Structure formats: structure tokens, C-alpha cells
Simulated assay, not measured.
Amino acid sequence: MDHYAQGSDTVSALQFPCTIFATQKRMDDYSASDMLCGDLSESQLKTQFHLVDVSTRANPYSLTKITPFSQPQSMFYGSRGEGEKISRQQCAEILFDEFRHLSQSFSLYGPYKSLIKKMITHMQNGEGAPFSSMYLDSALKEHIVNDRTENNTLAKIQRALTEKIDWAAHIYPEDEKDVLRNAILDGKLPKFDRYQDTINGMGITVHDTWATQIIVKSLNVSNDSYRAVIQYKIQDHFGLDVDDITKAKFSIFRFFRIWFLLQRYDLFSFKPFITNMEATIQISGERNESKK
């Protein structure tokens, strides 16, 4: 630990890398309610969650294909009926294909539009392994850097560094660490809950987040300026809990009904997974910025 004399006081320098913030919700939390899997029966899904009409392509309870009555002269023309028997695996493949197809309405444009299909496929084949993507990391960094609101945590970190750096000693004092944490608490952590996220694919893949860590990787102070490297580590869960499916805004969409059934129905039990995102950003500031 470095110490610097200031009159009769000794100032300890904060050592880097240093985690300056961590949410109460912890990383790698596989016990969370949205990480449950295969815990519900057919009768529970139907009676408690009203999941009777799940798919337009297959009945997951009877394991049969759903086919439209194709004869125009039939009085049932255009309605749906049950067709051939299929295996559990065939049914799951049909449901996942419909799941991917329905995801398109939540992911209309931009560089992240293909993410939701990749994450659905990861749920189908990944057996619960964590998921990461350069596109997720890019989306997170873009969100943080382009945030012009007063609640931007990066700007609040920048301001706290400028105000609390010991410019004479060229250090950040260890006993001022809480100032950095409090600055973040006073802001809004990056979440994909903006209007554009409802159609660019990020709202459906991430939306809210589960756990966040913010780390100052390095700090270099010279003369009247500084450079710092800040790292955001964020985790989300690609899974649904009971609260999700009982909200009208979710349950009205077939997309979420299929998702919940594939994850929670004991016949299928496809595992949800943890989504990892990281962004490393360099910032800089000057001694007199806080006075401007």
C-alpha cells in the first residue's frame, strides 16, 4: 500500500484494479426464480397459468402436430385441428422454430437483431451454459458511452474522480472510495429499457439486468489531468419466472407462452442460462473541470 504524507496526516492510495460497485444481487446466481427448469406439470401449466393455447404448430401436451383444415368446402376451413403424433424431440424442434419465428416482431432492425434467434438456439442446444457475444458487449458499451442523461453512471464516476483525486500526491485516496460507490448509486445502471430497445432486439434479449459490477481497472494522474479505465461487468438471465408469465403484457404473447413452457414444463425442461456482458471504457478529466 502506498502512503503519502500531507502535513501530519498519511494518505493511503486506492489500489487498482478496484471494484467500486456491486449490486446486492450476486453474479452466477443459479438459484434465482427465473432459472428454474422443468418444475411444472401439464395440469399446473393449464390450471395455474392458463397455458392451454400455446402453439399454432404443435400441441405440446398430446404431442401432435396442429394442421389447418385445408379444404375450402369444409365448414371448419381455416380453423386448426390436431394431426399426426410426433415425438417429444420433434415437438420441441417445432416449438423452437415457432419461438424463433415469433421473435422477429421484437427485433426489427440494427446490428443486434439476430441476437435473439442465437440466444433461443443456445437455449435449445446449450444445456444451460453461459452465453456471451461481441454484439452484447458492443451494445453495452454503446449504451454507456452514448448516454447523455444526468443519470449516466460513467459521467458520475468521472466527476467523482475529478473532485476527489489528491492532485498533489497524484493518487485517489483510499478513504474516498465510498464517494465513487455513492456516485454510482445516485445514477441509473445501464439497462435496455429504452424505447429503441423494444424494436432493436436488446429489449427482448436483455431488457432489465440481474447483477452489475463496476471496476476501476487503472488510474494514472499526471500534472493536472488523469486517465482511467473503467470496466462494467453485467449479467442477465435468459429465463422466465412466474411473475413474468402472470403479467398480462407477457402472457398475451404466444412468444412468451412457448418460452415458459419449453423452460418450465417437466416434459421438456430446456435450461435457462446466464448472459454475460462486458464493456471497458477509457475516460479522462482535468483538475479544474469540477469548477467549470
Rank of each mutant, 00 (worst) to 15 (best):
L115E: 12
L108W: 05
L51I: 02
S105Y: 12
Q48S: 01
I66A: 00
S105R: 15
E82N: 12
T121Y: 08
T67Y: 08
K117S: 14
T56P: 07
P68A: 05
P111G: 10
Y61D: 11
A139I: 06
E84D: 14
R26V: 15
V52W: 02
Q89E: 13
R88C: 05
L140N: 10
M134Y: 08
L115G: 10
L40Y: 05
Q124P: 00
N125Q: 07
Y135I: 14
R88Q: 03
L45A: 03
M123G: 02
Q124A: 09
D137S: 11
S114A: 13
S105D: 13
L51N: 00
S133R: 06
K46T: 08
K117Q: 15
D34R: 12
S132G: 10
S43H: 08
A58S: 03
C37K: 13
Q104R: 15
F49Q: 04
L95P: 05
E42W: 01
Q71L: 09
R26F: 02
Q71S: 15
S138P: 10
L108G: 04
G78L: 03
S31L: 12
E84Y: 03
M119G: 08
D39G: 00
L154D: 07
F76A: 12
L136C: 10
S105N: 12
M123F: 02
D147G: 10
P111Q: 09
T149A: 06
M119L: 13
H122D: 03
N152L: 02
Y112C: 11
G126A: 01
H143S: 15
Q73D: 08
V52D: 06
R26S: 15
M75G: 07
I120W: 04
N125K: 13
Y112T: 13
D34W: 12
K46H: 04
G83W: 09
L102C: 04
R100E: 13
